[in-house]
Amino acid sequence: MISPVLAQVKVVRPPAADGKGRVGAATAVTVGEDETVLPGHYPGFPIFPGVCVIECVRLSAVAAPPPGAESLALAEVESTRFLSPVFPGDELTVELTWSAAAEGWKCTAKVATVRAVAAQARLRFTTGKES
């Protein structure tokens, strides 16, 4: 899938069930100085856009899916809060918690830099090719 984010997602903790019906995982994403979006967001004052933080969550979700989930497609950003800015060079740690939903999966994510929590998000994914 075409992405505005160049950074590669590293799976730090592979998906594992917690015994309560949820699946946890963790990834790390380093925001490079050369990210495509930065010259325009903003000129002379690069801030990694909030929507690109959400993209890092989506990429993390696809890289660390719950067992048996294939072709995860983002259907809804159920909620997200942007709490602190992300700058070039930051390493994001992304904590994912998966839970099964009526159609597909929900993924709750907490994204942090070394300074602070940058964002929280709850995304809903569908599975399968048809979505």
Binding site: M1, I2, S3, P4, T36, P49, V51, C52, I54, E55, R58, L74, V77
Partner: peptide
């Protein structure tokens, strides 16, 4: 748009990045 610069030769998925739809609306 630059997101389409490095597209694999065999891709069939040219969907615009969903988070950029969000950004554009915002």
């Amino acid at each position: 748009e630059p997101w389409y610069r490095e597209v694999a030769a065999d891709t069939e998925d040219f969907a615009y990045p969903q988070v950029l739809l969000m950004e554009s609306w915002c």
